[in-house]
Design a protein around this nucleic acid. Structure first.
Length: 290
DNA sequence: CTGTGTTCCTGTTCGC
DNA sequence: TGCGAACAGGAACACA
């Protein structure tokens, strides 16, 4: 489910909740999600205050007041919702909440609960020392942060140089650029008018400098991510803002899930097609994306 | 090193 | 309406 914009929306919502006070206690209802929880997980969080809640790629990182960091990933179907003692029902949730998949509950003072739900259990939580994060296996190999200070056409050129994989596959690879998923790769490529099938290394000149197409792609990636964040993310099935409201960016998709529809690019008479690359659906317009 | 296929798990949608 | 197949926003891992 969640790609960078959705994780960022969740981060903003949870940041406000955790700022209210320390984690009184944690209910851990399973031994494992995608990976086993670390030893003593719930106990190590009890009484801790979240000093800051950061995002790197699709990871949430909660810096705790004891040098630990809580690392969370939502996988395909993870979501958080916030409930208060006075309103246990989910009136704000347009779709029903399946409590069977509530795996972790963070209890804050005043009856506030932050609940992690994940039907497919591809998400996970872990603990690490904050000082070890940059060398942590989960983070050491991650590529460019698309909305971070190091994002540039030149940085993309360095990451794509010599790569023979299709642009789609290269951009989905978190070691190249970290945070894009299937939706936003498709949408960014359409905005940049680039074919997902084009060899990634082809956007880099022999000198190692970015070709104009790559400059376009860099701008398209940032634009689509910012637009999506501004819209509260994309809600296809699971994604909610932490107050339960839906994201709106799915209404702005130009290619994702629009197989057979007319291309929305001005002056283009093409239709959106769906192909499969590396086992994932790719949506694009083969008339204007070259 | 690079690229691709498989796998984890459950829920929803689609075609017959 | 029922039922199996296909598919779903991620990414670690095995393998050619």
């Amino acid at each position: 489910m969640p790609e960078l914009p959705e994780v960022e929306i969740v981060r903003r919502g949870l940041e406000r909740v955790f700022a209210r006070g320390p984690i009184a206690r944690v209910e851990q209802r399973r031994h494992a999600l995608r990976f086993a929880f670390p030893e003593g997980f719930a106990k190590r969080l009890a009484g801790r205050r979240v000093q800051s809640l950061r995002r790197r790629a699709k990871y949430l990182i909660a810096d705790l007041d004891d040098q630990q960091a809580l690392i969370m990933h939502l996988g395909m179907s993870g979501s958080f919702r916030v409930e208060r003692a006075a309103e246990p029902s989910s009136l704000h949730h347009p779709l029903r909440v399946d409590r069977a998949h509530d795996h972790v509950v963070f209890h804050l003072d005043g009856g506030i609960r932050v609940i992690y739900n994940d039907p497919r259990r591809f998400g996970f939580m872990s603990l690490a020392l904050r000082a070890d994060l940059s060398s942590h296996p989960l983070f050491a190999g991650l590529g460019i942060e698309p909305l971070g200070p190091d994002m540039s056409a030149a940085a993309l050129a360095a990451a794509l140089s010599g790569r023979k994989a299709g642009l789609k596959s290269a951009l989905l690879d978190q070691r190249t650029i970290a945070g894009l998923g299937n939706i936003y790769v498709c949408e960014a490529l359409h905005r940049a008018k680039l074919s997902p099938l084009r060899a990634a290394g082809n956007l880099v000149a022999a000198t190692g400098k970015p070709k104009p197409a790559l400059v376009r792609l860099k701008a398209a990636i940032q634009e689509v991510l910012r637009d999506a964040i501004d819209a509260g993310g994309s809600s296809l099935r699971n994604h909610r803002q932490t107050d339960g409201s839906l994201g709106k960016f799915q209404h702005s998709f130009r290619v994702y899930g629009r197989e057979g529809e007319a291309c929305a690019a001005p002056g283009c008479r093409g239709r959106i097609v769906r192909i499969v690359q590396a086992g994932r659906s790719t949506f694009f317009c083969d008339a204007c994306q070259k």
